[in-house]
Design a protein around this nucleic acid. Structure first.
Lengths: 111, 111
DNA sequence: TCCAATGCCTAGAATATCTACTCATTGAAA
DNA sequence: TTTCAATGAGTAGATATTCTAGGCATTGGA
């Protein structure tokens, strides 16, 4: 039995969501579509991944939500970054860059 | 209360361990030191992280272990890559590159 | 004699993520 | 007119990863 499961998110989900919302306030469904487009379909968020993450981020005070009418005329819950969320996003992006550099150092090692 | 905890590994632990061992068979303690050196101390593996991971990788047939005398003259459990482990490492590295490219696409997005 | 370094290990908790659902509305195609 | 895809939000439960916080034993040097 082969383990073909590809680990996609690697703990970047929060950062990706925050980044999407930083571009402009969006509802959950739109966030999933957006991250799909931007990543050329690499990220295809499942709802069971997305919504709990949104709630988590709101509970932590990084996002704030409000119901508005969506583009299609239906009610949808729009998320926006809080100031804390913006700071957090910046910190996450910084750490992400440090992290992938550290990984690159290891992977490139010859010895 | 600020959440300062930095998530370091992001699911790359297995890949990092396999890469270290791919360079040359090593015992656990040496793997931790090695990954520390190579990453300029970014990765500082705790033993409670390292040893369960090694056992996991061995259970999955990606590593094989044997007791030998270490550099210091003590007994230590040396791990080596299996063929399956080598294939797995290559796949993980490939997926990792795809993944960080996808993240980069999102993070660089302007809109 | 005592401590730091070397070396291996486990238990338990917290988190993140995935699978697999539920529920409701709308619009268009058959 | 029924039916299906798309839009939109959600939960429950399982699994895997990682961390904290310990334990144990040996060695060499201060």
């Amino acid at each position: 039995m082969v383990d073909d499961r590809i680990e996609l998110l690697k703990g970047t989900l929060d950062m990706l969501i925050l980044k999407a919302v930083a571009m402009q306030p969006m509802h959950g469904y739109a966030i999933a579509l957006r991250l799909g487009q931007l990543s050329r379909d690499f990220f295809q968020l499942q709802q069971g991944t997305l919504y709990p993450a949104l709630h988590r981020l709101e509970d932590r005070g990084l996002l704030r939500s409000k119901w508005y009418e969506s583009e299609t005329g239906r009610e949808a819950k729009f998320y926006a970054l809080t100031r804390k969320g913006r700071r957090h996003l910046e910190a996450e992006m910084y750490n992400w860059q440090r992290m992938i550099k550290a990984v690159a150092l290891v992977l490139r090692a010859a010895d």
